[in-house]
């Protein structure tokens, strides 16, 4: 089966036998973008979170056939070292990661959150950010989420 979609604004057309293959494995092993992580394969930990048409999606539980015609964004397309996304900038400022494995999933979830709620409260964060971090970097992460929202608000104001 042929499925077409874009990843980080690059169009891809893939040929795949099992159309129910989780998007995660297509992204990681066919398109070689390793930033999206396998943590549980059961949509429980959030390490595989990416964006599909701007919405946070757990890609281990998303059959690739549903990606037809969609715009996918992964951590590799969030920002660059030269031009980091506000979430990445905030993560750097607060020195959030420890082992780092779960962090792309958290950052993608956060990017979706501050797009929809530009000034999230602690309650907004508690409700929407429900990924699992075993190093338990939650304390710095909360600070970084508030900071990311602030950077994004400032940036979008400047652009207006």
């Amino acid at each position: 089966m042929k499925i077409s979609f874009s990843v980080n604004e690059v169009p891809h057309s893939i040929e795949i036998k099992d159309e129910n293959t989780p998007l995660l494995w297509v992204i990681r092993d066919m398109l070689h973008l390793k930033g999206t992580k396998y943590g549980c394969g059961k949509a429980a930990c959030g390490a595989c979170t990416l964006h599909v048409d701007g919405e946070a999606v757990r890609s281990c539980s998303y059959a690739v056939k549903f990606a037809e015609g969609k715009k996918i964004r992964t951590i590799e397309g969030l920002g660059t070292k030269e031009n980091p996304h506000p979430v990445q900038q905030a993560w750097i400022e607060e020195i959030v990661p420890q082992c780092g494995y779960c962090q792309p999933g958290f950052m993608m979830a956060t990017a979706a959150l501050i797009d929809k709620i530009p000034e999230p409260t602690d309650d907004d964060i508690d409700r929407n950010i429900i990924n699992v971090c075993r190093c338990a970097t939650y304390y710095r992460m909360r600070k970084a989420i508030h900071r990311a929202a602030q950077i994004q608000r400032t940036t979008s104001k400047t652009m207006e």
Binding site: L33, K34, G35, T36, K37, Y38, T74, I75, E76, L78, G79, T80, K81, P84, Q88, W91, I92, I95, V96, P97, G100, Y101, Q103, P104, M107
Partner: peptide, 19 residues
Amino acid sequence: FSRVDLRDKVFGTPLFGMD
């Protein structure tokens, strides 16, 4: 000092055994 591995971990660089 900030972590020497910070940027790689923030930009999704393949670092881990599974990568």
